[in-house]
Amino acid sequence: MDKDDFLLLKIFFPNIQLSEEEQERFKALWSIKTFKQYDLITEAGSIERNFYIVLSGVQAIYVLNEKGEKVVLGFSYTGSPSGVFDSFVRGEPSKIFLEALKPSKLLSISKSDYLDLFQNHPSFFEWGHHFFQEVLFGRLSREVELLTLTAEQRYISFMQRCPDELKVIPQKYLASYLNMKPETFSRLRASVTL
């Protein structure tokens, strides 16, 4: 792991105070995994074994509907956490896929090492509390948007907050995430000025 990667890791855990020795041990728990475009990082039906932090690339989490179409639940991108959290926490097979939409480099920690962090450093509990609180708030806010906003409002809201690297992934993923047809997404992209 180079200096920049470690910096990103430290930013991800802002309030964790570790001695130099502890920092080295902490660093050693993480490994870098690379994925090609369209690689399945986590497959539905398998158990998520890792917690990830994205160093580069964009990934989508999705489920398949009855027609076998991908229904996108969310994205991860540079600096964000990634993985299939419910499967990771419960240790049960996932119903969700995690796929690299762009070539991706992820920092990865195994479940046992992740749990050891909490065991050995109680300050991680505080981090965990804030982290899962943010995840919950994010999901609630998305649910409200999906249930209350029009397609155009959802498009505008999303485009205003989403990072640039997400704007270049195939439109069908963005359309699915916003619960609209790719044709609608395309029409809005052409007609709405942000």
Binding site: L40, E43, A44, G45, L64, G68, K70, P93, F97
Partner: peptide, 17 residues
């Protein structure tokens, strides 16, 4: 009958379990 590799992978993993 529309086939996708993702659907097939999901079902194969279920059989493995």
């Amino acid at each position: 009958l529309i086939l996708t590799s993702e659907n097939q992978i999901h079902r194969l993993n279920t059989v493995f379990n």
